[in-house]
Simulated assay, not measured.
Amino acid sequence: MKPKRPTSLKLLFALNLIFFIPLANFAQTNETIYLWSGNVPGENEVKHDPVQTANTKGNVIRLTDVTNPALIVFEPEASVNNGAGIIVSPGGGYKTLSIDKEGYEVAAWLNTLGFTAFVLQYRVPDKQEQALYDIQRAIKIIRNRAKRWELNPNKIGVLGFSAGGSLSARASTRFNYDSYEKLDAIDTLSSRPDFALLIYPAYLDKGEERSITPELQITKDIPPFFIFATADDEHANSALVMASALRDNQIPVELHLLSNGGHGYGLRHGNIAAETWPALAEIWLKNIILD
């Protein structure tokens, strides 16, 4: 029997609680898994902790100068664990990571749905190529350790916001491309996500006349997608061209475009888009992944 989903009121209550949990509590209670035990491929700087920026606009904690990429693990209660895992990639223009609003808070919400969530601290700033190394390695590590979290290795997906949406799209279309040289047995595993959610994704329309970014090669074995954006978001064309390319290639895709909501809202209350996409995503996940 599948675990019972929380009702809308319970979900709202849970989300309200999440936003009052200090960041320090996450750091104290959640396991950190570093992606690279030795030298970090493509990294010239020595490993060190990420740097928190002075910019806290919008009550957001932002990290930068990531040289030792990591996964922060959020486990659901055992009674609701549904056997699926999701890597959460925060946005920040490939300059910073909005680590709480588009990372920890989202992971805690996913836990209420029964998902094991992994917040990815990928390399920034200005290391898009290396960020792909990081997410591909992260998928392989989770598959390798799936039994540890009671996960089905064939139910590992990605969820990204803004630049994190770009990274999630790249991971979902470039899994046949070895972005870095294989290091160990973990790298013999597939880096293909089993599903992908893009929330206000950016940088997917860098082709001619704002067409799909050439790097994103749409093939028949690409996983199903859920895409959410708003018409008043300057990056909304990314969602449209990605959905169109997927549809043209008969890849299952669900696209939602609200009239307003802007960009960078996460799932914080007070924004219509932020209050809309989680419920839609929950339904999609239930129908596509868990059924």
Rank of each mutant, 00 (worst) to 15 (best):
A108E: 03
T53A: 09
L15S: 09
Q121M: 09
T7H: 11
T188G: 01
E181Y: 03
L97A: 07
L159H: 03
G38K: 05
E129I: 11
K57H: 15
T219S: 13
D194G: 05
L197R: 01
P201F: 04
A171T: 08
N154E: 13
S191M: 01
G83K: 06
T32F: 09
I272L: 10
V60P: 02
A171S: 13
E181K: 10
L257G: 08
A281T: 02
G160W: 12
T64K: 09
K147G: 07
T53H: 14
L240C: 06
L255W: 01
M242P: 04
Y180I: 02
Y203S: 04
I272G: 01
A273S: 05
Q217I: 13
N152D: 13
I227V: 15
N271H: 13
A78Q: 12
S172E: 11
I99F: 06
K10G: 07
L151W: 03
F226Q: 00
R174A: 09
D291W: 06
Y203M: 09
I283C: 06
K101F: 05
Y94W: 11
K47V: 08
S191Q: 10
V241P: 01
S172R: 02
G270Y: 07
I272N: 13
D65K: 14
E77V: 08
A27K: 14
L267P: 03
L240P: 02
P193E: 07
A146M: 08
K47E: 04
W284C: 02
P252V: 10
V158W: 00
K286P: 00
G58L: 08
L23H: 13
A24C: 07
N59Y: 10
N55Y: 05
E45S: 15
E181A: 13
P252E: 01
R210Y: 10
S37E: 15
N144A: 15
E45L: 14
D49R: 15
W149G: 00
F225N: 05
N30Q: 14
G207M: 07
A14K: 15
R137A: 10
H235D: 07
K147C: 08
V253A: 15
S162L: 10
I222M: 02
S37P: 03
L9G: 14
S244R: 14
I227A: 07
P252Y: 09
K182Y: 07
N237C: 02
L97D: 04
V106G: 04
F226D: 00
V73Q: 01
N271G: 07
T173P: 00
Y94D: 01
I218Y: 06
P22N: 11
H48K: 09
D233V: 06
I87F: 03
N81R: 05
L71V: 10
E209M: 11
N39A: 14
P278M: 04
E77P: 02
K57N: 15
P69K: 03
S89I: 07
S211Y: 05
H263T: 01
G103F: 03
I227H: 08
S211L: 06
T56Q: 12
G270N: 11
L159V: 09
P153K: 00
H256T: 04
K95P: 00
L151R: 00
P6R: 11
A245G: 05
L17K: 07
R148C: 09
I156Q: 04
N260Y: 15
F13H: 12
G264N: 06
N249Q: 09
S238R: 07
D178L: 14
F118L: 04
I186W: 02
W277L: 06
F118K: 05
